[in-house]
Nucleic acid binder design. Structure first.
Lengths: 222, 222
DNA sequence: ACCTGAACACCGTTCAAGT
DNA sequence: ACCTGAACACCGTTCAAGT
């Protein structure tokens, strides 16, 4: 009775949005999007499924918050030049999807979410530093962000088709094998590229695409 | 007894994959992705939900087949020049997503499906005609396809946030309003662009992006 | 061979009841 | 205020039974 507990004190294991998001990320990383259920989450947090709704609005809110949390870790990657800074942002998103494929499917929904805003702001501010004229900056940023997120979605879809431990070459070889099953007369270009698919480095190809777009952007202001 | 029915004759309303896909597209166009359920589909086709499984493997197969059906309609759009042909393919995909937003979320999964192959083949063959050197064709096609599909996913996500009859300007104004709710000091570029968002023509911007990437591609072979 | 539709094994979400 | 967990209103998918 000498010591009364401080009323603002909370149990160390009290629920919070941060703890819920952390547990959700663990489930998503371990088993993909289908592994995140409110029952599994409640089990991992040792609570009832209804308790989660006191901290997140619904499953969509939970997925978006988890995605924001992953992307927030990769911002602020500086570079010596604007071009290098844009490359660093792009590579950061690419690698984040590599580690957390389920994020790729979340980046587009609700474009006012921190994940989208941070990527757009990061790219756009570097375009200003690059000297892209004001009227062209919006178009230029839109091209880069749409390309970066498009590749993110593709990588997320690829990861969903394979067991989590499958390597990149095996996945690409499987896609190439499917491509060559079609009629070569109908898809000659697809057949030609299928041979290059398994051994190509898709991270390198992605960054080569960033460079190519930056070349096109540098021609905007002439 | 004079006339015996031909054994190969089928009832006019017999189930087939084509009829099922047609009904699925109607449900998806009317109510979005959540409107496509096997119960609703069975109701529209006046059959049992189990009967559908005699013609499609599962819901994923059905969504992919519906998406292939939409994209198949837009191929073969010729152009006077390779550059115009690539623009026509890109605009065709853009307009198809505008009419059928749910397609945008389907294009990336299973990249050996006709939808992906047709877009990739259409773009790639025009790059050959454009004179892009052989070693650079794969990279160049990948940039264009990833950009086209990235925008498609974004438009699909935007459509999902709004009632089906909402117009584009209202949607963009709503996004801009959300963007300006954030701290201008943290997101200066986002704030600047938010002012241009509602009145900008996103179809024009998309095609400007195609042109910009083609400029970058033309620099590949030097 | 194709169809029927009830049954099964799940979901997200709600809410009366507890602390 | 926060938590509990049964209950509700759905899903996709299966499968014995029909034609």
């Amino acid at each position: 009775m000498a010591t009364t507990p401080q009323p603002t004190e909370r149990r160390a294991d009290a629920l919070s949005k941060a703890r819920i998001v952390e547990a959700a990320i663990a489930l998503l990383d371990a088993g993909g999007e289908s592994a995140l259920t409110f029952r599994a989450l409640a089990g991992r947090l040792a609570t009832g499924s209804g308790a989660i709704y006191h901290h997140v609005a619904d499953k969509n809110d939970l997925l978006a918050a988890a995605s924001d949390s992953i992307i927030a870790r990769i911002v602020g990657e500086a570079g010596a030049t604007p071009r290098e800074a844009i490359r660093a942002i792009a590579a950061g998103v690419f690698d984040a999807i590599d580690d957390h494929p389920w994020v790729g499917a979340q980046l587009h929904r609700e474009p006012w979410r921190p994940a989208m805003l941070q990527i757009f702001e990061g790219v756009g501010s570097q375009l200003q530093a690059l000297g892209v004229p004001e009227p062209a900056q919006f178009d230029a940023a839109a091209v880069l962000v749409n390309y970066i997120l498009g590749v993110a979605v593709q990588n997320a879809a690829n990861a969903r088709m394979q067991p989590p431990d499958a390597d990149r070459t095996a996945l690409l070889a499987a896609v190439a094998a499917r491509w060559t099953q079609h009629d070569p007369a109908e898809y000659p270009f697809v057949h030609k590229v299928a041979a290059q698919l398994p051994e190509h480095d898709d991270r390198e190809q992605f960054l080569a695409g960033i460079d190519l777009i930056l070349v096109g952007i540098s021609g905007l202001g002439r």
